[in-house]
């Protein structure tokens, strides 16, 4: 009997979310950008992903994660690498240097602060990668056309932010109620 009640409650909750959740669609110019929503308080994830250094490149070049995610920095090259970031979204107090480690080994780092992390290697200055730390689970990477769709976003007030490599980050307030739209043209 208890399990029947539980089933009903969960079903109602899902129906309620469907009724009171919407989506945010839009287009970011130029394409190949990242969009994420920021709620009142950061929501932590418990995931681990890998950022590789291979062929003198950060792979993937851009990675979007949620706050609380741990990134394993892997060195797949037969040369020594280093990973550091001079700031997070311009805040130099959040700079960090991960040190040196040989091929095949990795070092983890848990990102708890949202923002844009520019990854650099201090021996190969041409290397750069980006980790976009979203404070919510509602984020997306656009395709080359710039279109995005954030689905199942609970109704409410948010700040939506768009990022593209080399462009100025743009944020705007948005109220989600049903299907919403937010377009960006990044300069």
């Amino acid at each position: 009997m208890k399990s029947n009640y539980l089933f009903v409650v969960v079903a109602l909750a899902l129906i309620a979310q469907a009724c009171f959740a919407g989506s945010v669609k839009g287009k970011v110019t130029p394409g190949k950008s990242v969009v994420y929503l920021e709620a009142a308080a950061p929501q932590m994830a418990d995931k681990t992903v890998t950022m590789d250094q291979k062929g003198l490149l950060f792979q993937p070049h851009v990675m979007v994660i949620q706050t609380g995610t741990t990134v394993d920095f892997l060195n797949s090259d037969k040369v020594q690498h280093n990973v550091f970031w001079p700031n997070i979204s311009g805040d130099k107090k959040k700079s960090h240097n991960m040190g040196t480690w040989p091929q095949g080994q990795k070092r983890p780092f848990k990102f708890t602060e949202p923002g844009v992390v520019t990854l650099l290697c201090n021996v190969h200055p041409e290397m750069a990668g980006y980790i976009i730390v979203s404070p919510s689970p509602y984020f997306a990477e656009t395709g080359a056309d710039g279109d995005y769709n954030l689905a199942n976003v609970p109704d409410g007030q948010y700040t939506i932010t768009a990022w593209h490599e080399g462009k100025k980050v743009q944020s705007k307030k948005i109220t989600v109620s049903g299907n919403s739209t937010a377009d960006f043209t990044l300069q």
């Binding site: 020594q80 280093n82 550091f84 040190g99 040196t100 201090n122 021996v123």
Partner: peptide, 8 residues
């Protein structure tokens, strides 16, 4: 290269 605390 040597493995320094803050990079090779």
């Amino acid at each position: 290269q040597a493995a320094g605390a803050t990079g090779p």
